[in-house]
Amino acid sequence: MEVNDDRPVIQPSVTSGGQPLEPRHEPPAMAADQPSSPQDGLSTTRDDSLVEPIIVANSTWTPADPTAYNGGQPPQITHLRELELGDKSDNARWGALDIIPTKADYVLDLIRINSLWPLLSGLACCAMEMMSAATSRNDMDRFGMFPFRASPRQADVLIVAGTLTTKMAGPLIRLWEQMPEPKWCVAMGDCTTSGGRYKRSYATVEGIDRIMPVDVYVPGCPPRPEGLIYGMMKLQQLIKERRGHWPERHVGPTVPVGV
């Protein structure tokens, strides 16, 4: 995949009072922290490169019957595969004609941020706070995020609220693929961002970014409704800043190796 050099790079700034700090003393690496071979380590966000998109299978368990479930071949997230194959890495900089698509996209994005319809889908506890965010006390409708559509065909934002289990992962990916572009995903709660308190379980997915691209993470167990609204406002900001580049998202663990 082509890497855009023009894209602003977010550098981790380790400064204190204008003076760069000395590199922190690293704790001695334990055996448990070392990947056993180089390819075992997760791909991480380096300073100057984008994450390679990782195509993750939709199906999250192995069928016992080899002929069941499409012959055991897990279906892939197709739009990401297309993105990888095709040369669609448009940086929206192509001379004087630049103005047309960028401005049009900007205007459209301004419209979109004021009309984000979430999908009415809650998985677990966080769904309560998601509902609470839509009710009288914390009124999400003020920001144009209200009509919770029951059908994924009409939704814009998938708020994954609650623990994602391996059994639910398939249906959730299906919901995501049923939503029309442009679409966004908000991971609400600790369980969806990283596995949270059920990280060690045999039946949960440790973070939905393993199976679908995520735009905004809202941590908390569960986050308060204000937290969700703040996350959605961050999403609005993100949509404006991405300026029409909404499909360019990647699937894969966002947790670096050292964490």
Binding site: A57, T60, W61, T166, Y202, T204
Partner: peptide, 18 residues
Amino acid sequence: LRQGLGSDAGHMAPGIQT
């Protein structure tokens, strides 16, 4: 006896065994 995320061992760690 771990089954979660087992079918897509391609990019994941090689060691997931069922």
